[in-house]
Amino acid sequence: MQIHPLKLMLSPTFARCSSNLKPYILKTKPLSSSSLDFSPWSGLQPWRESPLNKNRFWGPNGPQTPPSSIDTNGTSLLDSASSLAELGALVLSTSDPLSKSKLSHLAFSKWRNEKLPIGIYDPPSRPARPPKPELVSPKEIPAPKDSGMPLNAYMLHNLAHVELNAIDLAWDTVVRFSPFSEILEEGFFADFAHVADDESRHFAWCSQRLDELGFRYGDMPAHNLLWRECEKSSDDVAARLAVIPLVQVRQIIHK
C-alpha cells in the first residue's frame, strides 16, 4: 500500500533515515500512527483529474468562458519558464492583481499541458503587491458603514483580498518547498498549483463583480494577517499545512 507523503515526512522512521535533510522540513514532533489516520475527501481524485477550468467570467447563468472581448491570450512572461517552480516564482513576482490572477491560470495550464518538471527555484522574499490596497492591522480595517462602499461591495472586496492572498500562498508553497520534491512527491505540488488556479478564478469573479458595482480591488484598506502567518511557516511545511487553513477560515468568518 502506498503511504501518503505527509505520513512519511512526519514518521519517526523517516526522520531517522533523513538526517541529511535540512532540519526545517522535520520540525514537527512524531505522531502516532492512529493520529495520522484520515478519510480522504471523496471528491479529491475527481478534482485532481478534472480538465482545466476556463470559466473565468461570471455570466448571467453562472461561470462561463470569457467573452471574446476579454483578453485571454497568453503572455511571453511564461515562455521561457521550464518548471513549475519557476512558473510559480513568476506569478509571485507579478504585482498587478488581475495580471497575477491571469498568470496563475496560464502557469498552471502550461505546466499541465507541457508536462514540465517540478524543478527548483528560489521564491521572492515576499509576493509583489500593488500600491493599493493599503495594508493595515486588522483593527484598522474600517467597518462597512465607514468604508465608503455598500455592504455587497465591502464583502466582495474582503473576499477578493482573501483570494489574492490564497494565490500567493499556494504558489509560495510550491516554490519554497520545491527543493524537497523527491520527499513530498509530485502530487503535493500538483495539488497546490491546482489550488492556485482555482483561487485565481475566484479572484477574477470577485474583481469582475466589483467592477460592475463601480468599485475595484484596492478601494479600501486590507490587512496582511494571512501573509504574516505564511512567513512564520516559511521554514516548516507541516506548520504551513496545519496553520494557514485555520487563518484563512478566520479571515472569512470574521468579515
Rank of each mutant, 00 (worst) to 15 (best):
L78I: 01
I183A: 10
T173M: 09
L92M: 03
E86C: 11
A153N: 07
N20A: 10
A107R: 10
S19R: 10
E163D: 13
Q64F: 02
P245S: 09
R176L: 08
D235R: 09
L241M: 13
K7D: 07
P63S: 14
K255P: 05
G43I: 00
N152A: 15
A15F: 01
P142I: 07
A153W: 03
S200K: 04
E231A: 15
P138R: 01
E199Q: 06
F192M: 13
D172T: 05
S99E: 15
E231F: 02
W58T: 13
A196T: 02
P46G: 06
I167H: 01
A15L: 08
E114D: 12
R228Y: 11
E186R: 13
S137R: 03
H161T: 01
S76P: 00
L84G: 09
K145L: 04
L116F: 06
D198A: 12
M9P: 00
I244G: 13
F203R: 12
A204T: 09
N61I: 11
N53S: 12
P97E: 06
P46W: 02
A238P: 04
H194N: 06
Y154H: 12
S99H: 11
A166Q: 03
L241H: 12
S33D: 12
L26A: 08
L135I: 04
P130D: 08
G43P: 12
S39E: 13
F180I: 01
N158L: 13
L31Y: 02
H254E: 13
L31I: 02
M1I: 06
N53Y: 03
M9G: 00
V136T: 00
H202F: 04
V243M: 13
A153I: 01
L225I: 05
G187W: 01
H161G: 11
S11H: 02
G59T: 08
F189M: 08
S147P: 01
Y154F: 09
V91H: 02
K100A: 15
V91A: 11
A81M: 13
S99I: 09
T65Y: 05
S99R: 15
E229D: 09
S109R: 07
K139W: 00
H105G: 14
K232V: 04
P60G: 09
A166M: 04
E134S: 14
E134M: 04
R228M: 10
K115P: 15
P60W: 04
L44C: 10
S19P: 00
Y154Q: 14
Y154G: 15
V195D: 06
I167R: 02
S104Q: 10
